[in-house]
Design a protein around this nucleic acid. Structure first.
Lengths: 126, 126, 126, 126
DNA sequence: GTGGTCTAGACCACG
DNA sequence: GTGGTCTAGACCACA
């Protein structure tokens, strides 16, 4: 799996890393029990500091996507129930805001639903 | 229309103001050609710094939601075509990320679509 | 309130800071809605790096002891219900271990209970 | 006696081993003069490195729980007086911190004492 | 080898 | 003024 970091983005680098790992898991590019590269290796690969990668991994751990194993490093291991409530609150708030913008701009429900269908094909393909 | 600011939130106050105005427009609580309260009045109302409200208004103008008139203050005036491309990029990126999370957490397309239907009822009611 | 840091301790400095703030709150030395010193000021005071204090504050926030306000910095604000389960698990595990040691060393239940009574006097005194 | 190692825990493995042996002694599952499994065998059993078990045994020896005999291996042999002062300091410090948390969270002295009673039943049963 | 901690110093966003 | 992010480089504990 290849991470593409936009250094000019307003989105913090560690958030970009975290989000792309989550997207990679959804697409099946990263599987359960798979080991992520070590913080140092990944940092080297994408040309950022070790601490930046470390922060991304720490957040992935807190959100229940990975476990940190002293022997093997970071391992994908989904334990998402614990953070389900926080996620739903965040999702509702953000979806509401984006839907409001869509409505104001004349994008219809159906266009959005079509997009969602398209995205889910990306996730179900294997 | 009432703005509810969460001072404990990680979302910057000016973003909260901006977003709630956009949501208010979608719900029909704020209509076209309606004047928004002056920067000074709104700042006083919600207990924040004048500059903070000013920043929110400036962004609303940049996104094409309002016009700033030296005599009348801020007037709702939708001119959203100019920012359509930027919006779509942002929407696609964020929806993709949220859908990835939904997929990982076992939320189905249909649940999301139901939520979208529910939200749009909020917007079409007038 | 004065923090005493033991730089030779195996306990990380940020943990020492976090724990002493929690103890200060229990003793009533730090009250609700009270502002903690800024990360830079406290770091200067106790002679550590800003980031170390920042990490302590971030953990206090995550455990529900303080809120971070963009305007005022860190404010004591108890919201401990959310982390109650995690706390109880941790407490049970650790108490069990310490009680096992007490039993092995011949310390009686009553001695421990007396110590607990003594400690709680420290907390109820105001 | 069965050791349960949590490889996902933040508690180092050798500490988990050490603590569980101490708890096993308190519960009477391991008795005085009993031989512990050899470093090699135990390491094999729980699937960890030999050095890790060795470190746990060394600490148990330092705390006065076992003796290392070149012929027989590790033998339970309590000699806890030497480490009593260190233990009491550690106990006081940690109990104080945990009691502070209990007080902040509204857990009463009596609830804690009840828990202690319950735990001691585990130890006195033989 | 791994991650965890700490330092020193920089820049930026927010209010 | 505040905290948030990032870098560079160091040392340590763990396995």
């Amino acid at each position: 799996m290849i991470l593409r970091i936009d250094f000019d983005s307003e989105v913090p680098i560690y958030v970009q890393i975290k989000n792309q790992v989550i997207e990679g898991i959804a697409r099946g590019e990263i599987e359960g029990d798979e080991e992520l590269p070590s913080v140092r290796v990944l940092a080297e690969d994408i040309g950022v500091n070790m601490h930046t990668v470390n922060k991304a991994y720490t957040m992935l751990k807190e959100e229940g996507y990975i476990k940190i194993d002293r022997r093997k490093g970071a391992i994908v291991s989904l334990n998402l129930d614990q953070s389900m409530n926080r996620f739903k609150e965040d999702l509702n708030e953000n979806l509401y805001y984006y839907m409001a913008q869509c409505y104001n701009r004349g994008l219809s429900k159906d266009e959005i639903k079509d997009y969602i269908d398209k995205v889910f094909l990306d996730f179900n393909k294997e």
